[in-house]
């Protein structure tokens, strides 16, 4: 299909000059990125661009760069005037905040639209994407001229596709107390603070038997022992071999711990009694 069409372009140069102009309308449908196409700013516009042969620079200037402003129904309409030869245009839709897919628009010398395809920037021009429109009821005759009754009055309507939305601004991290509390350092500090103040109170409110039980337990457990030693004012933690404990070397240090904790334990209890 594409191959046959591209062969049409080659021999279209001599095709009959038609009179009427055809129109290409691009509609912007509502999409997730742009729920209301009427919200697009008025500067949005679409352009059809191709090379202008400098031999006809002044005459073809309007034909090689066409611009269509945004209409109030969120469409762009091009009136395609007849040209001296068939053209293959790049259709760009420009809006400050949105990026649209580019299209390839092939136009015959009489101004009728031969086809509209998606195109990929930075790829060979022949590498066409999804076909949006193609003139089907046309057969090139022997001379390559197009036959078809009212060819030039075909008006084409395609839908634009939004690729992405441009973010112009950098997000600034806002100061919020919640974010402050998400900070692990702050959380650790708060937990430590909670232990410092909360633990003695908790211990006082326990009945004596449970307390004795708890103390007994804590004496056997190195962790709580360490915690308690830290809690009870950090008086002499020197005997606790933290490195050894963290390395998992249990048998030898446990003894040390027992000695040290018991020593401090008595201090703790006496304080509470007194």
């Amino acid at each position: 299909m594409f191959i046959s069409l591209s062969s049409i372009f080659a021999c279209l140069i001599l095709s009959v000059p038609a009179l009427a102009t055809s129109a290409l309308t691009i509609t912007i449908p509502p999409s997730n990125l742009l729920p209301n196409p009427n919200a697009l700013p008025a500067v949005s516009h679409a352009t059809l661009t191709t090379i202008s042969s400098s031999a006809f620079a002044s005459a073809s200037k309007t034909n090689s760069h066409l611009t269509a402003p945004l209409s109030r129904s969120a469409t762009f309409t091009f009136r395609l005037p007849p040209s001296t030869k068939p053209e293959s245009y790049l259709l760009d839709i420009r809006s400050p905040e949105f990026v649209f897919t580019p299209y390839r628009v092939d136009i015959a010398a009489d101004g009728s639209i031969l086809g509209v395809w998606e195109t990929f920037r930075g790829n060979p021009w022949d590498n066409r994407g999804v076909e949006k429109f193609v003139l089907t009821d046309v057969n090139p005759d022997v001379n390559g001229a197009l036959t078809g009754s009212d060819l030039s009055t075909v008006d084409v309507n395609i839908e634009a596709k939004i690729l992405t939305r441009r973010g112009f601004y950098e997000e600034r991290s806002k100061f919020s107390p919640l974010a402050l509390f998400k900070n692990p350092m702050i959380l650790i500090a708060l937990v430590a603070l909670g232990f410092t103040f909360g633990m003695p109170k908790l211990m006082e409110n326990m009945d004596p038997e449970m307390r004795a039980e708890f103390e007994k337990q804590s004496r056997t457990s190195p962790i709580s022992g360490a915690t308690r030693s830290a809690m009870s004012g950090g008086g002499a933690p020197g005997n606790f071999d933290l490195a050894g404990w963290m390395a998992g070397a249990t048998p030898r240090p446990t003894q040390d711990v027992e000695v040290s904790t018991s020593g401090r334990e008595s201090g703790g209890t006496t304080r509470r009694k007194g």
Partner: peptide, 12 residues
């Protein structure tokens, strides 16, 4: 603006 000279060229 670079146009298509060779079929493998890009346009833009």
């Amino acid at each position: 603006w670079g146009d298509v000279i060779d079929p493998s060229d890009a346009k833009g």
